[in-house]
Simulated assay, not measured.
Amino acid sequence: MASSYSALLLGDSAAFTAAFRTLINNPQFSDVTFLVGGEKQEVFAHRCLLSCRCQAFHAMLSQPQKTQGPLLLSHVRPEVFLAVIEYLYTNSVTLNNAIALEVLTSSMEYGLNDLRKLCVEFIKDSLTVEQVCEALQAAVAYGQMDLQTHCLAFIENCTREVVHTRGFLELSKLAILTILRSDCLAIDEVELIHAVQEWARVGSAVLGSPVCDVAEGVVCELRLALLSPSELTTLEKENKKDQMIPIESIAEAWKMHALWKGRRTRSCLCRRRRGTLPREHHRHLDPQHK
């Protein structure tokens, strides 16, 4: 008796994808409509395709009260939602710098792990000085360590430019701490302190909180002891305006200066960054961190 034989044979995947692409936002044969964004733009889709491709949509469309009438999605922009739809229909997505981070957010919301990976790769490949802080913020918020590491490396290479962007001023505490803990920032400590002061003042204006409260937990990462005595004196005077830096931190920096004579120190507060400009007292620092 002859043995049976079977095989899975693949047709033209490009033609298959092209055919499904014609269904994107096509009202013909669609059986579900979304009202997307503040303008409630209509987006047409097919219930069975969304349900089989995305568990979140399957749960959404399985609710009896949502089987009739359009579904409201006011929290997402139409172009972002259409990118998600494109991915669900074709397993590919068209991204640009204007929507990539928001598509990443949607991929997390809808549990689309492969779309998340595509977004992360695009963001990594297209980072700019103006957008890197926003990308870092997203990476920190969503626990995307690969993207976070990539953003931090970018920031380390162009720190002076990055700290003058709007994105830097809008960073969360956790995100800015990620930056301040790096030894590889290409910026001198004085300029970095001024950048953090500006960040805290903007945050104070937005949140209606004192500058010192906004900066709490952040200023401890500033390496005040790297400043020369004259720079530290100037900082102490400037600090009287908003008291961003606790008096104890400034006193600790002065203490380090007083104790340097005749000994070296390995304190993390004295560790020089890549962009730290040399001062005379730096000869007392750990020689491993030249």
Rank of each mutant, 00 (worst) to 15 (best):
E130M: 10
A135Y: 04
Q144Y: 09
E134K: 12
V140D: 14
A138Q: 09
V129A: 09
L147A: 11
E134I: 06
K124T: 07
C133T: 05
V129G: 02
A153F: 01
Q148L: 11
E156W: 00
Q144T: 13
G143V: 02
Q137N: 11
G143E: 04
A153C: 00
G143R: 02
V140E: 13
F154Y: 09
A153I: 00
T149A: 10
L152N: 01
D125P: 01
M145L: 12
L152H: 03
E130H: 11
G143I: 03
T159A: 06
A141R: 13
E130V: 14
Q137P: 12
L147E: 05
N157M: 00
C158A: 02
Q137F: 10
Q137Y: 09
T159I: 00
C133L: 06
Y142C: 08
D146H: 13
K124C: 06
D146L: 08
Y142D: 11
L136R: 10
Q148E: 13
A141E: 09
S126R: 12
K124F: 01
G143N: 06
A139V: 07
N157W: 00
C158M: 00
A153S: 04
N157F: 00
A153P: 00
S126C: 09
T128I: 04
A135F: 06
Q144K: 05
Q137K: 13
V132R: 08
E134P: 08
S126W: 02
Y142N: 15
Y142T: 13
A138T: 12
A135K: 03
E130A: 15
S126A: 12
Q137C: 12
C133M: 05
S126M: 06
H150F: 12
L152V: 03
C133Y: 05
Q144L: 15
L152Y: 02
A138K: 15
D146P: 01
L127A: 05
T128W: 02
A135Q: 03
N157Q: 05
L152P: 01
A141F: 11
G143Y: 03
V129R: 04
M145G: 09
Q137M: 10
A141Q: 14
V140N: 10
T128V: 04
C151L: 05
T149C: 04
L127G: 05
I155Q: 02
A153T: 06
V132F: 10
F154W: 03
C151R: 04
T128Y: 04
T149Y: 05
C151T: 04
A141M: 07
C133F: 06
Q144V: 14
C133D: 05
Q144N: 12
